[in-house]
Amino acid sequence: MRLYEDPAAPRWSLPPALAALYGGDLGYPEPCLYANFVASLDGVVALGPEYPASGSTISGREPADRFVMGLLRACADAVLIGAGTLRASPRHRWTPEHVYPAAAADFALLRRQRRRAAEPELVVVTASGILPAEHPALQAGALIATTTAGASRLAGRLPPTCTILPLGDGPALHIPQVLDTIRARGHTTILSEAGPRLVGQLVGDGILNELFLTLSPVLAGRADTTRHGLIAGLELLPARHETADLISARQHASYLFLRYRLPGRRPSAGHSDHQVPPR
């Protein structure tokens, strides 16, 4: 059920079946970098390294949330993840139909209407180049953004479906450079499904344009484990005040589906770009 929609938000015409499930049309300004998260009522998005399937646990594998995940992927030219996300999901494929197979034909129709490739390109960011080469997502094909040392470590280990992009000789990657490289391949609409640390870097550099947040009616709690919220590795308040504008709000049962616009900005002169540490 649609609760609120910014009348000025851009809209593409979705195939009728997708529009019916979503409760209207969906679109983005281009270029656009947007992220998708599911969070518990107390703000937890990751349960810790000992619980790799955090998203599914927090969402309860709610079909409406999985549909939105699939729809956001179907709208994207590329899906961006970090190496930690890849390793935590050993059987996952970052395609629309993987999370919501019932709408596979309609997702494909949307991509044809938008003149997109059959599937979004998977982009894996890893400074270290330490990746599970046998992962089915890599076997299917991915773009690997890494350092010179990471590229050397990966040489000859990945299937020919993968493309390795060495982006510097240092021990870390500069996130704006990674995004510029992805866009140079013609990808104007990029979905981030990376974890809180990489998203913290996107927010810190002012290059995340929109956030989709599913609020799940579950309490996660915190005790002796590290349980991140949306952003990790970056402190904002009280020194830095960042706000977001609500674009839309939808409800399904006790779940809320929220969409926000962030005030994107480029780092000012003298500002050091956030870097992806070796992983």
Rank of each mutant, 00 (worst) to 15 (best):
A53H: 13
A53M: 08
S54H: 09
G55F: 07
G55N: 13
S56F: 05
S56L: 09
S56T: 09
S56A: 15
T57K: 14
T57V: 13
I58L: 08
G60L: 12
R61F: 00
R61M: 05
E62F: 04
P63H: 12
R66A: 11
R66N: 09
R66G: 02
V68M: 06
V68E: 04
M69R: 11
G70E: 14
G70I: 15
G70V: 15
G70L: 13
G70T: 14
L71G: 03
R73L: 08
A74V: 08
A74S: 10
C75E: 10
A76F: 01
A76D: 04
A76P: 04
A76E: 06
A76G: 04
D77H: 10
A83N: 04
A83S: 12
T85C: 05
L86Q: 04
L86D: 02
L86C: 02
L86V: 04
R87H: 11
R87D: 07
A88L: 05
A88N: 07
P90S: 07
R91Y: 08
R91D: 15
R91V: 12
R91N: 14
H92Q: 13
R93Q: 12
W94V: 04
T95L: 01
T95R: 08
T95N: 00
P96Q: 12
E97M: 05
E97Q: 14
V99G: 09
A103N: 09
A103M: 13
A103Q: 09
A103E: 08
A105T: 15
A105F: 03
F107M: 09
F107D: 07
F107Y: 05
L110N: 00
L110P: 00
R112V: 03
R112K: 09
Q113A: 08
R114A: 09
R114L: 14
R115A: 15
R116Q: 10
R116W: 00
R116C: 03
R116N: 01
A117F: 00
A118I: 12
A118E: 15
E119T: 06
P120C: 02
E121T: 04
E121C: 00
L122E: 03
A127R: 03
S128F: 00
S128P: 02
G129C: 10
G129T: 13
L131Y: 10
L131P: 14
P132F: 06
P132Q: 12
P132L: 09
H135Q: 04
H135T: 05
